[in-house]
Design a protein around this nucleic acid. Structure first.
Lengths: 403, 403
DNA sequence: ATGATTTTTTTTGCAGATCAAATTAAATCA
DNA sequence: TGATTTAATTTGATCTGCAAAAAAAATCAT
C-alpha cells in the first residue's frame, strides 16, 4: 500500500558508461568492438562512452605488447585498459584487535599494505579514528606517497552499516552506536571515505577484481573469527533491509547446539570458528595455542585434532549446502586465508556440500571455488569498494560537463 | 572471463509502461498524479503511458464512487484501474495427486475454480496434458465461458522448470524429463501457456495481488507436502542458476537427522511436513489418519500430539531464522492453508524465529505476516503468473503499433 | 453568476541515449 | 598500388522522458 515507489536503482546504476568501465576492468585489456559485444551495445555507443572515459582519464589506449598482432587483416584493434594512475585508493579493515590497510591504484594493483595492532574490542570513536589515520599515514610513508594523493578510502568493518550514508549503526569495534564515520573520517583525512560491511567489501573485491569478475550472480563465503557471506545478485550486492551482512555464521545447524559467542546455540560459527575448534580440544584436555598448531597436529596424525577438524568440515559443508539449496548459485567463492587449511576444502567437504543439497543430481552442480587471498584480503576488499565508488563519482561528475 | 555479457534485464523489464501498469494494479484504483508520484515519473510521461494503456484496453477510467469527491478545489482527479475484462486467464497447479484450476479476470478477480484428482506420482506426459485439458474444460463449463476466450494459462508445478522457455527439465509429476510443456499445451489448448515452478508462482501472486503488492523485496514461505520458498529481490523473482525453486524444505536443520522423503537426513521438511508429524506419532503407536485430526487432538489436550507439534513449531522457527539471517528481509509472508494450524503461527513460534536470528536486537525486526489462502492458492498463483505474462506480451505488442 | 484560484491533465518543445547506416581509418593481400 | 578486410567514427533518426506552458475542470469569493 505504500512502498511501491522505489523506482530508480537500475541494473547499471549510473548507466551504460559504468557498464562499459566494468567490462574494461573485468577484461583487463579489451578493444572497442569486443566491448560492444560483451556489453551488448552498438559500436557507435561504445565509441562515445570510451571517448568520455578517455577524456576523463579513467582509461587509456594500450599499444598491444609486440606479438599480439596476429597478422589479421583490416584495421587493427586498439586495446583499452584501466589507467592505474587515474586514482590512488586506500582500503582499511577494522578487525577485532588489528587494523589492516592497503594502497591500490585505480586498476587494483597493490602498492603497499600493512597490519597494525589496536586495542581489542569496542573502542571510543576518536581512538578508532586515530588508529585509522595513523595506519594510513604509515602505509603512505612506506610507499613514499603523500596522503593528499589518495582519492578515496574504503573502510570495511563488522556490524550494521548503511553504506549509502557511510553510517555505522553499530559495530563490535565501536563503543558508541550511530556514528557518522564517513563524515568524521573524511573531514579528518581530507579525502572521500566509503564505509561498508566487511563481508560486502570482500564481495565487491571478488566482483570487480577477483573470481566473480563480470559474473551476474555469485556468493562469497569468508571465514575468519566468524563466518561471513556476501551475496551478488543481478550485478548488485544484496544488502538486507537493515544493512546487516548476511550472517551465515549464525545460521543454526543444530537446535540447542553448541554455545556461540553471540549467546545463542547451534550457530555454524560455533562449530567451525577457530575458538570453537580450540575449545573442543580443550574440553578433553588437549590444549592447542592456535589453529595452526592444531592443524599441524592433525596432519601429523593426532586423532583428536583430526576428529575435531572432520566434524568442522562436515558442519561447514552442511551450512554451505543450505546456501546452495536456497540460492541455487552457479558459483560459490570461498575466500580467505582460512581456506588454506585443508579441512575446509578437501574434495570430500566440497562434495558433501553438494551432496547435502537437494538437487545434487541436477547438472551442472554449483561450482565451489577457493580463492586463497593473503592476510590483507579484507583491506583489499575495502580498497575495491573505494575504487568502485570513486569510479562512480568520477562518472557522475562527467555528465554535467558535457558542454 | 566470459559471462560478463548479460547486459539487458533491467529493473522494469519492459520499461516504464510495465511499471505504470504495476503501480495501477497494486493500488487498485489511482489517479494519474498519484501514479507519477508513486512511480517517480513526470506527469507528462504518465499521461503518455496511461493513454497507451487505455488505447490497448488494459486499463479504464473509473468514475469514483459517489462520496469520494472530497470537495477539493481544482480539477478533479480521474481514477484509473485495471480493466478486469481485458483478458481471461486460467491457472493450473499440478500437485501430487490432484490438479486444481482457477479462472481469473485480468484484475485478478476469481471467476471460478475446482480441484480434481489425478493418478498420484509421475505421469506420462499425454496423461498429464489430458488431465489439464479436462480440468480447463470443466472449469470453463461451470463458469459458462468458452475455452477460446482464455488469453493465457499459467501452470505451476514442482520440479525444475525453465520459465523463460516454459520447459520442464524434471518434475515429480512427469515420468519423462525435458518436456516442452509450453508448446505441447499451447498447441493443444490454443492459448498462450506459461509454465513455472510452483513456489515461484505463489511469489508472483503475492507480488502482484497479495501481501507483497508493490514491495521491492520480500520472501514467501509455503508449506504443503513440502516446504517451499519464493524470493523477490529488486522487484524480480530470484530463479537460481538451474531454475530449481529455493528448496527451503530441504535445508538441513540437523546433521544426520530425521529421514526425509528426498532420501537425505535432517531436512526441515522431515520435521514439519505432514508425513513427518504423522510418522512421529505413529512411532509410539499413536495413529492419526490426518493432520487435522492430530491437530484437533493436540488442542483437546493430547500430550503426544501437542509435543510433536511443539517441536515442529520450533524446527520451523529455526529454518525461518536461517532465512532471516541470510536475507535480512523486511517481510516474510507465510502463505497457505497450513498456516491455519496454530502450531506454525503462534506468537511463540514467530518470536522464536526472530529470536534465533542474530540481529534480534536490531530494529525493526522482520515482519512475519501470515497470508491464509484457500485451497486454490497454488492455482491462483499460476493464474497470477499468466496475468503477468499476458500483460507483458500485450505491452510488447503495443510498441510497434506506435504509428 | 462571474471571474479568480486551484489542481489535474495534456500539449509542446527540447535534451539525452542509442542505434543503423554511411563513412573514414588502417591494416593485409595480391 | 589498388582491392579487400576489419575497426572505429560520424551522421541522422528514433525513442524516452522531462520541464514548462497551456488547457481543462473543478471550487471560492464577491
Amino acid at each position: 500500500m505504500s512502498d511501491q515507489g522505489t523506482p530508480p536503482a537500475p541494473d547499471r546504476p549510473e548507466g551504460a558508461r559504468q557498464h562499459v568501465l566494468a567490462v574494461i576492468r573485468s577484461a583487463g585489456t579489451i578493444a572497442r568492438t569486443e566491448i560492444a559485444q560483451a556489453a551488448g551495445l552498438s559500436p557507435a555507443t561504445v565509441t562515445a562512452h570510451t571517448s568520455d572515459l578517455l577524456r576523463a582519464g579513467l582509461i587509456e589506449e594500450r599499444t598491444s605488447p609486440a606479438g599480439t598482432e596476429t597478422g589479421r587483416r583490416g584495421r587493427p584493434r586498439v586495446a583499452l585498459g584501466i589507467r592505474g594512475d587515474a586514482h590512488l585508493l586506500a582500503g582499511i579493515k577494522v578487525a577485532h584487535d588489528t587494523i589492516s590497510v592497503v594502497l591500490n591504484d585505480f586498476a587494483g594493483q597493490a602498492i603497499g599494505g600493512l597490519e597494525l595492532p589496536i586495542p581489542a574490542g569496542a573502542l571510543e570513536t576518536s581512538v578508532l579514528c586515530d588508529a585509522i589515520s595513523d595506519a594510513l599515514a604509515r602505509v603512505c610513508a612506506e610507499a613514499g606517497l603523500a596522503r593528499s594523493q589518495i582519492s578515496g578510502l574504503g573502510v570495511g568493518m563488522a556490524g550494521l552499516v548503511d553504506a549509502r550514508r557511510n553510517w555505522v549503526y553499530w559495530s563490535p569495534s565501536l563503543a558508541t552506536r550511530n556514528i557518522d564515520l564517513g563524515t568524521l573520517l573524511s573531514q579528518r583525512l581530507g579525502c572521500a571515505v566509503f564505509v561498508d560491511n566487511d563481508a560486502n567489501v570482500v564481495a565487491k573485491a571478488e566482483q570487480i577484481l577477483g573470481e566473480g569478475r563480470g559474473l551476474r550472480d555469485f556468493i562469497v563465503v569468508t571465514i575468519e573469527r566468524g563466518v561471513g557471506m556476501g551475496i551478488v545478485l543481478n550485478n548488485r550486492i544484496h544488502r538486507g533491509a537493515r544493512g546487516c551482512g548476511a550472517e551465515l555464521g549464525h545460521t543454526k545447524v543444530q537446535i540447542d547446539g553448541a554455545l556461540c559467542r553471540c549467546g545463542q546455540r547451534g550457530c555454524l560459527e560455533a562449530y567451525v570458528g577457530d575458538y570453537a575448534l580450540l575449545r573442543e580440544a580443550s574440553s578433553i584436555g588437549a590444549e592447542f595455542t592456535n589453529l595452526a598448531g592444531m592443524h599441524a597436529a592433525a596432519q601429523a596424525g593426532n586423532v583428536t585434532a583430526r576428529s575435531i577438524f572432520d566434524r568442522a568440515g562436515r558442519m561447514f559443508a552442511l551450512g554451505l549446502s543450505n546456501v546452495i539449496d536456497i540460492f541455487d548459485p552457479a558459483l560459490v567463492i570461498l575466500a580467505g586465508r582460512r581456506f588454506d587449511y585443508d579441512y575446509l576444502t578437501t574434495e570430500t567437504v566440497l562434495d558433501q556440500a553438494n551432496a547435502f543439497s537437494l538437487q545434487a543430481e541436477v547438472q551442472p552442480l554449483p561450482e565451489l571455488r577457493v580463492h586463497r587471498w593473503g592476510d590483507l584480503m579484507w583491506a583489499q576488499g575495502a580498497a575495491a569498494h573505494a575504487i568502485d565508488e570513486v569510479a562512480r563519482l568520477s562518472l557522475a561528475r562527467l555528465d554535467p560537463n558535457a558542454a
